[in-house]
């Protein structure tokens, strides 16, 4: 790794004050260090969030919403009973991510904001649109783990399990933007919705709409007891998702009143499938409706030469996630 500086602020005000285009927040550092070790990017300063007190915890609000601190570990998200009860889709997604060694230190915000895992992106030897290049070598090269939707310019899939889960859950981020004259933090909220993510057509150099001086303080997740995240992997544990679906159902009696279906590991950004949601609305969430949702989710798929298997993987994920969500929270 190239040399860099380091700071470990003890409050959120100090943390946000230290950030700049070159001074980046560091959660677990899994992505920052990987990019630095590979020579893709190295911030001038890593601002460790490890000592910012409130950001490592979960809270329950007055209306049943859960506040998940931005540096909560994936291990805590996966195992805290309160998180599992209020928003199982988030707990599932955290539990399915990576390995116990990674989950012990990787954080919510870091997972959400990690860069793509495409081999070509992570190796500066290759040209890559996500590093300012004019072409995507994966189109002709190895794209067996590439996108099957939205893959016209770049076929790196969005790597984050939590991104799909937070998108399906309709979570809102509370983002610190700076410190005002009185020393109090200023902030904005950002819904984790399709507009939060940036597709390559708009700007290949980033995946999320968040400024360089901004700090994700927490994610506020509405209660979603009938929800689930399911992924398909080549290996039973450890592996990155070959496809993933996060499903949140609002039930009305035995029928789905409203559904949100997010597709992970399918496109350069996590996608909210309106068509899959429409296939579930007003239906009993049984096998028939689940299959219709799965079919709707993959309807526009444009698989590449070597990744058509991922279309079937995505179908399976959507179907299973609908059925799992339907059995929960009742």
């Amino acid at each position: 790794m190239k040399p860099f500086s380091y700071a470990r602020p003890a409050s959120r005000e100090e943390a946000v004050r230290l950030l700049s285009p070159t001074a980046r927040p560091k959660g677990g550092g899994y992505d920052l260090l990987d990019l630095a070790k590979n020579g893709v990017s190295t911030p001038g300063t890593m601002v460790s969030l490890a000592a910012v007190p409130e950001m490592g915890k979960a809270w329950t609000g007055d209306h049943g919403e859960t506040y998940l601190g931005g540096r909560m570990t994936l291990a805590d998200l996966a195992t805290l009973p309160a998180v599992r009860a209020a928003c199982p889709v988030v707990a599932d997604a955290a539990a399915e991510a990576a390995t116990p060694l990674v989950r012990a230190t990787a954080t919510l915000a870091g997972n959400l904001l990690q860069r793509p895992r495409c081999t070509y992106f992570r190796d500066p030897f290759f040209e890559c649109r996500k590093r300012g290049g004019a072409a995507c070598p994966a189109m002709e090269g190895d794209h067996a783990e590439g996108a099957i939707l939205g893959n016209r310019l770049c076929c790196a899939v969005h790597p984050s399990n939590l991104a799909a889960a937070l998108l399906a859950a309709g979570a809102e981020l509370r983002i610190l933007t700076g410190v005002d004259g009185k020393g109090e933090p200023t902030w904005r909220t950002a819904a984790v919705d399709p507009a939060f993510f940036v597709a390559p057509e708009e700007d290949p150099l980033r995946e999320a709409r968040i400024g360089p001086g901004e700090l994700v303080f927490d994610a506020v997740v509405p209660p979603c007891p009938s929800s689930a995240y399911v992924e398909v992997n080549q290996k039973a544990s450890f592996d990155w998702a070959s496809a993933a679906a996060a499903v949140v159902l609002e039930m009305d009696g035995g029928k789905v009143a409203r559904a949100r279906v997010a597709l992970g590991a399918a496109a350069p950004v996590p996608l909210l499938s309106e068509a899959a949601a429409a296939a579930l609305a007003g239906k009993a969430p049984g096998a028939k409706a689940a299959e219709a949702a799965a079919e709707a989710a993959v309807a526009g798929a444009t698989p590449l030469r070597d990744n058509a298997h991922r279309v079937q993987h995505l179908r399976v994920c959507v179907k299973r996630a609908v059925l799992l969500a339907a059995g929960r929270g009742r």
Binding site: K57, A58, G61, L80
Partner: peptide, 13 residues
């Protein structure tokens, strides 16, 4: 933090 109650993580708090 209005109305927010700790739901876990690290015990007491």
């Amino acid at each position: 933090l209005k109305g927010a109650a700790a739901v876990a993580a690290g015990g007491a708090a």
